[in-house]
């Protein structure tokens, strides 16, 4: 399939650029930025829900890429997955440090469902979905929504409880049981 071949080529190119970044090549980091900043800014903005914060976190993300490029292993992860994980973790770090009690309300104001929809569309469009998407689809609705809100919106346990308007113990158990089922599903192939 030509699109799959194209995706493979892009992935190989990005992996090659990250290898150059690991050797201290700034130009390569600039090229990684050109190819991935829209995606990674999407991650930062979605989780921090604040443009200024997202811009700041985005800068940190590329500095982390600069410092950690030597640890990227193309055998174990796709480059975009690796980059998104850095962006997501940096954004969650920012939220846990600066978010305070505010985000639970903000999460309700934010069109979370619309954002979720956008992510879903992109998932459906992807020609080569990772198995975890199918596993996530199989979870009971509450478990699935809790995990989606945690992963894509970066919500903490207490923010999940307030966003899902359920007791903390309940949403925690949705997360825990959902994660265990995901693991079972991923192992079951």
């Amino acid at each position: 399939m030509p699109t799959a071949a194209h995706a493979d080529a892009r992935r190989a190119e990005l992996s090659g650029l990250i290898a150059r970044v690991a050797r201290g090549d700034r130009k390569a980091l600039g090229l990684v930025y050109d190819r991935t900043s829209a995606k990674l800014f999407g991650v930062c903005l979605r989780i921090t829900r604040d443009r200024e914060a997202a811009e700041d976190v985005l800068q940190q993300v590329y500095l982390k890429v600069w410092n950690r490029a030597g640890r990227f292993d193309p055998e174990h992860a796709s480059p975009i997955t690796w980059l998104c994980a850095i962006a997501r973790n940096a954004s969650i770090d920012w939220m846990r440090k600066h978010g305070g009690p505010m985000p639970s309300d903000a999460a309700e104001d934010e069109p979370g469902a619309a954002g979720l929809g956008a992510a879903m569309e992109e998932m459906a469009a992807g020609e080569e979905r990772a198995q975890i998407f199918d596993c996530l689809d199989k979870l009971p609705p509450n478990h699935q929504q809790a995990i989606r809100l945690a992963f894509f919106d970066g919500l903490s346990h207490s923010e999940l409880a307030s966003t899902m308007r359920s007791p903390l113990g309940t949403t925690k158990s949705w997360i825990r049981r959902g994660l265990l089922q995901l693991r079972g599903c991923l192992q079951g192939d």
């Binding site: 600039g30 930025y33 900043s37 829209a38 995606k39 990674l40 800014f41 999407g42 991650v43 903005l45 979605r46 443009r51 811009e55 985005l58 800068q59 174990h76 992860a77 796709s78 975009i80 997955t81 690796w82 998104c84 994980a85 962006a87 997501r88 954002g115 956008a118 992510a119 879903m120 992109e122 998932m123 992807g126 990772a130 975890i132 998407f133 996530l136 992963f151 894509f152 995901l182 693991r183 991923l186």
Partner: peptide
């Protein structure tokens, strides 16, 4: 992380600021 991180592919893009 190895299990969950592939979900990251589903994040929607956003027009990035020029912070290069």
């Amino acid at each position: 992380q190895g299990r969950l991180d592939p979900l990251g592919e589903a994040f929607a893009e956003a027009p990035p600021p020029d912070v290069w």
